[in-house]
Design a protein around this nucleic acid. Structure first.
Lengths: 173, 173
DNA sequence: CTGAACTTTCGGTAAATACTGAAATATATG
DNA sequence: CATATATTTCAGTATTTACCGAAAGTTCAG
């Protein structure tokens, strides 16, 4: 009979591996997603060496991805007194995780897109030809929409969990 | 002095190229994003050959990406009477574009994630150890949240443009 | 200041992904 | 059914992205 600890290790390893696959299906580095999954399901903070060991990856790789996750705000660095090593612990609150991801994706995806659209918008303003005007119109609708989406995602991600749930109820009701 | 047609060609080429860069920054094939940009700003439907020509890409590449965009529901195939070639035209309505993208990303990103979480949830239910129970709890919060997000994105993407705007006003108000 | 503990960087390499070009297949026309 | 026209597939190749491991850099205690 399999011990509970063994079973847990198996299930957790499966989770880590699959979360990595998911990650790569939505444009996130596989290893980064695995590190995140590992720490989200770790009872304790882990050091770079422990992460290397657990995932069988190199120091450089572990380092890069841990730091990237810190940049995303999904991991925190913690220091244990009397030790010089850095340990990493995951943000566990799902709403907080969601907010960080929305914020980061907005910064990386939405904001630069908006910039591009605004350039095209002004570069094509005042064009007289049919082609020029229809291009301008299309840029205008896109720019309006993306600007709007940007504002909305700020709003939602800025809400505390409770407020967001209230709002959600309105949508369902 | 530069003619308006020349200027338009420049601006549009810039848009197509940059839209491609954007795409690759959010996990979408660069070429696919370029093809999409090209057709969104084309006054007329285009054939595979015209797309190849315009973007200087091979037939196979053009074909694959055009068909993929049709799968996403972002392009339609149109047939001109008296001709055997297929032409492609883009969906131009921004709300419609948004809905298609949300739907597709949900199908690819959210649904499989939910499946994984549900497996981990049931595999860890009833565990007695501290580690087992905290793993189960974490899976539970994630599963609840993702299931909820899934439902919300269905709701929003299922709304007609007008309804969605009304709702948006509530959030701002 | 010196050495040990730990972190960061980076050139070379491996793996994954996208693209080409041509052949194979399908479809319409006479 | 023969031919021309158009679409689809795919093996080989090119490009991009991720990873390793060792060396360089940093920090801190003694």
């Amino acid at each position: 009979m399999k011990s509970e600890a063994t079973k847990l290790r198996e299930v957790r390893d499966g989770f880590v591996a699959q979360w990595g696959v998911m990650g790569s299906h939505w444009g996130i580095n596989r290893t980064m997603a695995q590190v995140h999954a590992l720490l989200m399901t770790s009872p304790d903070a882990m050091s770079t060496d422990e992460v290397m060991e657990e995932l069988s990856i190199s120091r450089g790789n572990a380092h890069t991805n841990l730091k990237e996750l810190v940049n995303w705000g999904l991991l925190r660095i913690v220091i244990r007194k009397g030790e010089r090593k850095e340990y990493f612990e995951a943000e566990l609150d799902v709403w907080e995780i969601f907010r960080r991801i929305v914020e980061e994706r907005k910064r990386r995806e939405i904001d630069p897109t908006l910039g591009l659209l605004q350039e095209c918008l002004s570069a094509s303003s005042g064009m007289k030809s049919a082609g020029g005007r229809s291009f301008h119109e299309q840029m205008k609708s896109l720019e309006e929409f993306v600007r709007f989406a940007s504002k909305m995602s700020d709003r939602v991600a800025g809400m505390p969990h409770g407020k967001a749930m209230q709002l959600a109820m309105k949508i369902f009701g």
